[in-house]
């Protein structure tokens, strides 16, 4: 399957943090043809294992891209049948008004987030963002029927299928970080073209959006020698500073800072240079908001690198991605893994 096709399918499957059962099953099935072994754990992390053709000489590498997505959750249902909700993961309340959603109750229900018409608002009121606690979802059902189908704690996802913008840009929801899962899938294919040592665990992690919780658990379980976290970063837009955003068309972004292993990161950059893959650098002075933060300090410590793709409008329903970046990043990652043969430990020595 081609990457865009896979991305389009993945973002259609609900997988709000903590409730990733469906997306986890789908990712498992997607990984299967390209891995020797695939399993899931109790927290819906998916582990795909690929052993190198050169046995015993290379490191145990763990890739991590998260499969969960941000979303909403039913908090209460009032006597008229309006649903109040809370957010799971970081949702900008300003994008919520008038969104179309699915409520995952006993049945999958369609609903809209209501917005008070402008002519009913006072001047002062109109200046302020509407807070989440004042919003409700209208599922168009009478309260009795609604309460039969929906209960407190049910998940709500956004309706926003993948569309093509000007080639090669695509747009949709939850590209953060389903595109990372697609990148792992493409990396598997790339690896099949190469000879590499050691073994590679492709881990699609759960609960990243609520505190990299899936990565904490899965890294402990895999006990890797090297970690490669894969996530999105901010693409350039006119309303954000150049310091905080990245050109959408150059290629993958390699992060540097205390959270990443300096020598391993150098090696990653050298592999990119040697193979003519353009990349950008993102400087992260503190902890990154990605799985890398947890992978690095698992057990006795895991030297970790972070590979990112620029994404515009992160955590909205119209995230925009350059699909070519995924291919470039996958090729870089596969070449990086294949570059570590005998004596790979040397590149970690302080």
């Amino acid at each position: 399957m081609d990457g865009k096709e896979l991305l389009s399918r993945l973002i259609e499957i609900p997988g709000v943090s903590g409730y990733e059962d469906q997306i986890s099953d789908m990712v498992r099935d997607t990984f299967r043809p390209y891995c020797q072994e695939v399993h899931q754990d109790a927290f819906y992390n998916v582990y795909g294992k690929k052993a190198g053709t050169k046995q015993g000489l290379g490191p145990k590498v763990m890739l991590a891209a998260h499969l969960d997505e941000i979303g909403l959750m039913v908090k209460d249902i009032d006597e008229k049948g309006f649903i109040s909700f809370t957010n799971i993961g970081g949702v900008d309340q300003r994008i919520l008004l008038s969104q179309e959603v699915y409520i995952h109750g006993k049945e999958k229900l369609f609903g809209v987030i209501g917005a008070k018409p402008p002519h009913l608002q006072g001047k002062e009121e109109a200046k302020k963002a509407v807070p989440v606690k004042e919003m409700v979802i209208d599922a168009g059902l009478d309260p009795k029927r609604l309460k039969e189908l929906v209960s407190i704690g049910d998940l709500i996802t956004f309706k926003s299928p993948l569309i093509d913008l000007n080639e090669p840009y695509v747009c949709g929801k939850s590209i953060d970080d389903r595109a990372g899962v697609v990148m792992m899938y493409e990396t598997m294919k790339e690896l099949d073209k190469l000879v590499f040592a050691g073994e590679v665990y492709f881990v699609a992690t759960a609960q990243e959006e609520v505190g990299t919780r899936g990565a904490i658990i899965s890294t402990y379980s895999v006990e890797p020698d090297i970690g490669i976290a894969i996530d999105v970063t901010h693409g350039d837009t006119p309303d954000a500073s150049k310091e905080e955003t990245h050109n959408m068309d150059t290629g993958p972004v390699i992060a540097v800072g205390p959270n990443m292993h300096p020598k391993l990161t150098d090696r990653l950059m050298n592999v990119a240079k040697d193979n003519g893959i353009d990349y950008l650098i993102e400087v992260e002075p503190g902890l990154t908001g990605t799985d890398a933060r947890s992978i690095q300090v698992s057990r006795q410590g895991v030297p970790t690198v972070l590979i990112e793709f620029p994404l515009r409008y992160m955590h909205t329903t119209v995230e925009v991605l350059n699909m070519d970046t995924i291919k470039k990043a996958a090729r870089l990652t596969a070449l990086f893994i294949a570059s570590m043969g005998e004596g790979w430990e040397e590149c970690l020595t302080y």
């Binding site: 205390p258 959270n259 902890l287 690095q296 300090v297 006795q300 410590g301």
Partner: peptide, 9 residues
């Protein structure tokens, strides 16, 4: 200084 990282491992 960036979150008690080294001591943990």
């Amino acid at each position: 200084e960036v979150g008690i990282r080294g001591a943990k491992v």
